[in-house]
């Protein structure tokens, strides 16, 4: 997996967090993992097709997910209900859409599949590639991860 793929997702995440939540995002050290497992409570999976196929998992601690939706709605959120998970799914959808646009600059053409929500930790997701890259991210409202398992098809 090339660095530009990861960077496309990092830049998209940073931009969308800044635009929608007014929050800065810092990247941690990239890791290589054998399995794609939900590391946190609130998870969104986005499938990718085209020149790159596979899936991207956005994994947020529940408190952070509630805080993100609180920032968006201006309302206190106390549980991961359909309102919260759907807002989170759309946010991951927007980030992934922007990542696809960033990849187009490298002449990589992809499409994304609508988000799928998974609640709970330690759930295993099937992978398209043999390994996945784990990108930890830090913000003032918590730390979360993006797990990227994609392979080139061309």
């Amino acid at each position: 997996m090339k660095a530009e793929y990861i960077n496309a997702f990092y830049v998209a995440t940073r931009d969308v967090f800044s635009c929608m939540l007014d929050i800065d995002t810092q990247r941690g050290e990239l890791g290589l993992v054998e399995d794609m497992i939900t590391g946190r409570e609130a998870n969104v999976i986005i499938g990718m097709t085209g020149d790159l196929t596979g899936s991207v998992l956005y994994s947020f601690p529940d408190k952070m997910a509630l805080d993100m939706v609180k920032i968006m709605s201006g309302m206190e959120m106390d549980k991961l209900d359909s309102f919260v998970t759907s807002a989170l799914g759309e946010l991951a959808n927007i980030i992934s859409g922007n990542a696809v646009t960033n990849l187009e600059k490298h002449r990589i053409s992809c499409q994304i599949v609508p988000p799928q929500i998974i609640i709970g930790q330690n759930k295993s997701i099937s992978m398209a590639a043999e390994k996945a890259l784990l990108l930890p991210l830090k913000t003032e409202i918590g730390e979360f991860e993006i797990n990227i398992s994609i392979k080139e098809t061309k």
Partner: peptide, 8 residues
């Protein structure tokens, strides 16, 4: 679900 998506 509709409300969450619409807002974001």
């Amino acid at each position: 679900e509709f409300g969450g998506k619409l807002m974001a």
